[in-house]
Design a protein around this nucleic acid. Structure first.
Length: 263
DNA sequence: ATGGTAGCCTTGCTA
């Protein structure tokens, strides 16, 4: 069994104690990180490698930034979304590990509507769809995980009314997310859970976490070959409740891959 | 009516 997790840490350096504590306690085999908010030169490689992880980073000063951590080697690494070379923001990293093609992504937020940010979000999603389609053609198991900045349905938000004019719920955003699913990808958490109003993000303001006023925007999408291996998917709420937390909490899934068979 | 919090090394911008 191999565990794959995603976590938007909202600054990897500020969150280093939280991250290391979670690596030590939960010890995922693979972890996709988003919002590093730093360049590769300032990424805390040492502390993470000491815990037995291979690391690949696509950094950016102050904003965005993604990384892949794995207890197995990370092979054929790609930094940046293929086919979208003009994108100047660090939002995508991909590698093969444990026999799975893993893409870690940080989808643009898109707010506020009426600015160039929303069309950028849609354009980014269009490029993700194209690449996701190309990945399917390889017929290998694929996992596309990360902060999608997308609330799939009104069951995934504490108060849909408040998000009516938010980029995370717009029909154009949701249609593109559904296109990904219609290509043949399975959203791991939803495929194994029926309950509504379970969240992966809580705003820092207004005691949102204490009131469970959250949204579910961190997702793990599995190609058919990967979905066949899915046995479990959970949201680990605990890190959000700890001291100086990220506003996101980790989402993880378990795939029935024999760690020893894969190199 | 337009806060409220967090993180960046931009005392504004992004989320």
């Amino acid at each position: 069994m191999v565990t794959f997790a995603t976590w938007n840490v909202n600054s990897v350096n500020k969150r280093l104690p939280n991250l290391l504590a979670w690596l030590d306690s939960f010890s995922p085999d693979v972890l996709m990180l988003q919002e590093l908010k730093t360049v590769e030169e300032k990424f805390p490689f040492l502390e993470i490698q000491e815990r037995g992880y291979h690391v690949e980073v696509l950094g950016q000063k102050s904003y965005n930034g993604v990384a892949l951590l794995s207890k197995a080697p990370l092979e054929n690494v790609i930094k940046g979304l293929p086919g979208y070379e003009s994108d100047e923001q660090a939002r995508y990293i991909e590698a093969t590990t444990f026999g799975i093609r893993v893409g870690g992504l940080y989808l643009p937020n898109g707010n506020p509507l009426g600015t160039e940010k929303f069309p950028y979000k849609l354009e980014w999603m269009d490029h993700l769809i194209s690449h996701a389609r190309a990945l399917l053609k390889t017929e290998q198991p694929v996992l596309l995980g990360g902060d999608y900045n997308l609330i799939p349905t009104d069951d995934d938000v504490y108060n849909p009314k408040l998000f009516e004019k938010d980029a995370l719920t717009q029909p154009e955003s949701r249609a593109r997310f559904r296109t990904l699913l219609n290509l043949g990808y399975t959203e791991a958490w939803r495929s194994l859970h029926r309950e509504s109003h379970v969240y992966s993000y809580w705003d820092y303001t207004k005691r949102a976490y204490e009131h469970d006023n959250g949204i579910r925007i961190d997702h793990l999408l599995l190609s058919p070959q990967a979905a066949d291996l899915l046995v479990k998917c959970e949201i680990d709420k605990a890190p959000r409740g700890e001291e100086s937390p990220s506003d996101h909490t980790p989402v993880w899934c378990e795939l029935s891959v024999d760690p020893a068979e894969q190199e």
